[in-house]
């Protein structure tokens, strides 16, 4: 029993030390009308594991929450927007951190996803932070140019699965 408790504590600490994804925000581009906005809203609602979508029609943006934050798929969210006929202007991962040190090129796992940091300075992440995904199709080409060169030459981060390149957006 004591060893089980110890294992639980270790697991809990290790998880918390990396932080947790809480929600994802997206701005879609290529539309104005509310019919178009509603098409994206309906498509996002249909993505497996999505529990709630809040829309801001005026700014064509969406705030997405999950039934199980342990299995978040950014690809599925992006595909919902593009299948509706539009593009992702930006995608932000909203995460809560418990004092995690990050540096340029460092990577870390949040829930089921691996992120590699670009265009940041060495810092400790504490509390709620917004991670802006800078990969192709997740950010407009115009905005990607700010980050594109800095990460495309970097070696791939360690770990399984796809690596998303992110930078820290000031709240």
């Amino acid at each position: 029993m004591k060893s089980l408790y110890l294992l639980w504590t270790v697991l809990l600490t290790s998880t918390l030390s990396f932080g947790q994804i809480q929600s994802v925000s997206i701005q879609a581009s290529g539309l104005t009308c509310s019919m178009c906005s509603r098409a994206i809203y309906k498509a996002l609602e249909k993505v497996p594991n999505v529990s709630n979508v809040e829309e801001d029609i005026e700014h064509t943006s969406y705030h997405i929450q999950f039934k199980d934050p342990a299995v978040v798929s950014l690809e599925n969210l992006k595909k919902a927007v593009t299948d509706a006929g539009f593009s992702v202007a930006w995608m932000e991962v909203n995460a809560n951190f418990q004092n995690v040190e990050v540096a340029p090129d460092s990577s870390l796992r949040l829930n089921n996803l691996i992120f590699q940091f670009v265009d940041i300075h060495k810092q400790n992440l504490l509390g709620k932070k917004k991670l802006l995904v800078v990969d192709r199709d997740y950010l407009s080409d115009k905005d990607r140019k700010k980050y594109g060169a800095s990460y495309q030459s970097m070696p791939a981060a360690e770990g399984n699965g796809r690596i998303f390149h992110v930078t820290i957006r000031q709240s």
């Binding site: 701005q27 581009s29 290529g30 539309l31 104005t32 006929g85 539009f86 593009s87 202007a89 115009k142």
Partner: peptide
Amino acid sequence: YRLYAADGVNKH
């Protein structure tokens, strides 16, 4: 059939 699309915020 869509041949080409260039999207920006509130424009395309």
